[in-house]
């Protein structure tokens, strides 16, 4: 079948659009592989004239890359696991209780999910200082887990809802305890839901900037805060910054491609089913 002209125009347009949209990112990658002086050359050029890894060595010289990456990774992983375990259990209880109170709780979860991190920065800063946890990884782990838990619960609520309670019933009749029912029957069915919640929460914590800026200074600093340091008023190291942006975002982009199915589901869940 011959393609209609309209369709052909559509295809070309969609390809042009995606290239156009990726331009800033491609430009950053190009800048990362330019020599430092070329990044701030006037007028700027798109492609590197000479290929160089000078910016990467500059990045490693000026910033404790491994430490910051490790801080980012460890805090986001551990907080995600905490949020996932506690959140999925609590959401199950809310969904299955069927009490009038549970509607209220669902609304509360939704409201907590909407709260801007910047606005609760005020009391959280006080709380963490009172606990003596300022500039520790534990502080970040606790706060990430707490802030992201409503998101986990919200995602899981919509998944549990799709599982008929007759399934719980069958397991119960077969002699399983409540916890066994949850672990052996419900959780395996919810595996895609858990995967979705996991990857989203992980990204939210990994990408966080504000909380780390607020709660850390030296020891527990994460990569995002270190990266922003390249752009302060007295320090304009754009070459290493591009290299850092590349190092930080490349794993994210790869993971986005690999786990695309779960990401799409996470973003559209609830919206399409309505």
């Amino acid at each position: 079948m011959k393609m209609s002209i309209g369709k052909r125009i559509g295809i070309i347009a969609s390809i042009i659009l995606s290239v156009f949209w990726l331009f800033p990112y491609i430009y950053t990658i190009c800048c990362a592989f330019k020599p430092g002086s070329e990044v701030v050359a006037v007028p700027p050029a798109f492609f590197p004239k000479t290929f160089s890894v000078e910016n990467f060595s500059g990045l490693f010289e000026r910033m404790d890359v491994w430490k910051y990456l490790f801080n980012s990774l460890s805090t986001s992983l551990i907080s995600t696991i905490i949020a996932l375990v506690l959140g999925s259990l609590a959401a199950y209880a809310i969904q299955r209780s069927g009490a009038k109170l549970s509607i209220l709780l669902v609304v509360l979860v939704l409201c907590l999910k909407m709260i801007p991190t910047s606005s609760i920065s005020v009391p959280i800063y006080g709380l963490i200082c009172d606990l003596g946890l300022y500039d520790t990884k534990i502080a970040l782990i606790i706060v990430y887990a707490a802030v992201n838990m409503p998101f986990v619960m919200w995602t899981m609520l919509s998944f549990y809802e799709g599982i008929p309670s007759t399934l719980d019933e069958a397991a119960y009749i077969d002699g399983a305890s409540s916890f066994q029912t949850f672990r052996k029957v419900i959780l395996p069915i919810c595996a895609p839901g858990l995967a979705t919640a996991f990857i989203f929460t992980l990204f939210l914590a990994w990408n966080d900037f504000l909380l780390s800026l607020l709660l850390t200074s030296m020891n527990a600093k994460t990569f995002t805060v270190g990266l922003a340091g390249f752009l302060s008023a007295y320090n304009l190291d754009l070459g290493p910054m591009c290299a850092g942006a590349f190092v930080f975002s490349f794993p994210v982009m790869v993971l986005t491609l690999v786990a695309q199915r779960y990401i799409v589901r996470g973003m559209t869940s609830g919206a399409v089913k309505g």
């Binding site: 659009l17 995606s18 949209w21 990726l22 800033p24 990112y25 430009y27 950053t28 990204f203 990994w206 990408n207 900037f209 995002t224 990266l227 922003a228 390249f230 752009l231 910054m241 942006a245 930080f248 975002s249 994210v252 982009m253 993971l255 986005t256 491609l257 695309q260 990401i263």
Partner: peptide, 17 residues
């Protein structure tokens, strides 16, 4: 899929770029 790759980039990185 390619179009989706920036989806999860940190807002901070987007700002810096």
């Amino acid at each position: 899929s390619i179009m989706m790759t920036p989806l999860m980039i940190a807002p901070l990185v987007a700002g810096l770029i």
